[in-house]
Amino acid sequence: MNPGADPLAYAPDSIPHPGETLKDTLDELGIPQADLARRTGLSTKHINQVIKGTAPLSPDTALLLERTTGVPATLWNSLEAAYRTQQAREEESKALASRVDWLSRFPLAELVKLKILPNREKTPANLLRLLDWFGVADPDTAEDVWRSYRTAFRRSTVLEPNEYTTATWLRLAELRARELDTHPFDKSRLTALLPKLRALTLAEQDTWIEDLPRLCAEVGVAVVFVPALPKTRVSGATRWLTPEKVLVALSDRFKKDDQFWFSFFHELGHVLLHGKRLTFMDDSDNFSSSKVHEDPDEDEANEFAANTLIPLPYTADYQQLRAKPMPFSRIEAFARRVGIAPGIVVGRLQHDDALDWKYGNNLKRTVTLI
């Protein structure tokens, strides 16, 4: 079943066991059960159990029935499979009925808004729909999967108080990325593409929102934009979907271009510098130079992003600007020399405590993802 499909869409309320069809067939053919037993070599007791539905109709029995009734074995097998599947579905529904409170951990209003669920009701049907959307068997399995992600996360917001909303955001990103056609990942081509990607910081959102995913797809990077969900701190994520395709997901949590572009190049740092078996979920704490991270990978990704946006040849010029950032015309002139949006320079200066956070924000551009 495709992710997001309704798991109940093709599930009738009840499916008769194949014994009922066998009984009707025998009645139409005028074959008594005892006669069928003799023709098939099966016991009368077993035939009776199949007709009552207390014994399964095996593939071997289906072949025997094909020869004695003329009804294809494939039909008997299909009837048996449909009946057993329905029985299993009913048992699953009973088991999940006691787990519907698991839905309370998710942002149900957002799930309805995103058309993942039809309503906010805590019902077995909605629980099944959500499990199907996540592609997991049951709530315990889902949480085991997320725990395994956390083991791989070098810095993570997952499995904190907002774990379920964050898991929802990541699943949205994953599903969108899997739909994108990308070329096989090429590290050298991605590295060569960096100047062109950096130049997109100067473009209007209507331009880069189309060009950024297109350019990255050509080197095996599936870039997707997923608006930030309430109560999440996630700014970006990196996850290898296959050895030849890597997901880079970006949110609009901070709504400004300096944070957005730093997050993007931070994620590319993970792609270029770190292992394919790791998943990275990044938040604002990742980008703090004063924070002691659990792993140096985050510091490396930060350094990569900073040096990509303001390359090392401009370090001396930047230090001069840092010593005297005002008036704003100095910031704008430096941004022109470097070839990046001035809002990014403002954000860097604010981060480096060279400019008060209340100054220069008018040079930043708003990023809004839908």
Rank of each mutant, 00 (worst) to 15 (best):
F287V: 04
S98H: 13
E163F: 05
R178D: 01
R39W: 10
L355D: 07
R99L: 11
G19A: 06
A217H: 14
G269A: 07
F334M: 10
A306L: 11
R253N: 10
T182R: 10
E210S: 11
V71A: 06
L312I: 09
A222Y: 11
A203R: 14
T191Y: 09
R147V: 01
F153S: 09
F264S: 08
T201N: 06
G4D: 11
Q259T: 14
R233M: 12
T21H: 12
Y318I: 04
A323R: 05
R178A: 02
E204N: 13
R348E: 08
K187E: 15
A249M: 13
I340V: 15
I340Q: 03
K358N: 07
E244L: 12
D299P: 00
S289I: 11
R348S: 03
Y10F: 07
S289V: 12
K187W: 02
D13V: 11
D353M: 11
E80G: 07
P139S: 08
I31H: 06
D283Y: 02
R189I: 08
T242W: 00
E28P: 00
E66W: 00
V50P: 09
P118N: 04
S156H: 03
A9V: 02
Q33I: 03
E28Q: 13
R129C: 06
L197E: 12
E160L: 10
A203C: 12
A152R: 15
M1D: 09
N362V: 04
E298H: 11
S235E: 15
I15W: 04
S284I: 05
